[in-house]
């Protein structure tokens, strides 16, 4: 009898730990609220920053665009997308994406998902993950 109680407690603890670990940093399983191209997103902010901020800020967004450059800060990748002449989209990615970003290069067309945090000179996105990559058209 005591043994059964012990086993059930152990199983219970394991299940609780699994649930806790499931709840953290699972951006990828959540569906985005908006699907846009980088140009569309920048156009929204250029047109009316306050309105766009209310619409997109703190929301999960999936964007498609062409890579301008990739930089690294302590293995944490940042991808900048071209949009209009003056502004683009700057996406800071999770460090777990490092292995994927090393395979990417300038002018690749990719889709990225993350949280929009607002607009400075460019639209800023945080906690991004790569959804898919397409070979750039020559």
């Amino acid at each position: 009898m005591k043994f059964k109680i012990f086993i059930s407690i152990v199983i219970g603890i394991i299940i609780i730990f699994m649930l806790i670990s499931l709840n953290f940093n699972k951006v990828e399983i959540i569906k985005p609220q908006f699907y846009l191209t980088t140009t569309e997103l920048v156009d929204y902010f250029n047109l009316d920053e306050d309105l766009a901020d209310k619409k997109f800020a703190n929301k999960l967004i999936q964007i498609e665009g062409t890579i301008k450059n990739i930089t690294y800060n302590n293995k944490k990748p940042t991808i900048t997308f071209n949009a209009t002449d003056d502004s683009g989209v700057i996406c800071s990615l999770n460090s777990t994406e490092f292995n994927h970003t090393t395979k990417l290069q300038k002018n690749d067309k990719i889709t990225i998902q993350g949280k929009c945090t607002g607009f400075l000179l460019d639209v800023i996105m945080a906690d991004c993950i790569i959804i898919k990559k397409r070979k750039h058209e020559n």
Binding site: A57, G118, A126
Partner: peptide, 19 residues
């Protein structure tokens, strides 16, 4: 200039309270 939402905390709950 900086965006307040771009501040990253260790604990997600702290970040939520902060914002």
């Amino acid at each position: 200039k900086m965006l307040m939402r771009s501040f990253h905390f260790k604990k997600a709950l702290m970040q939520e309270h902060f914002n």
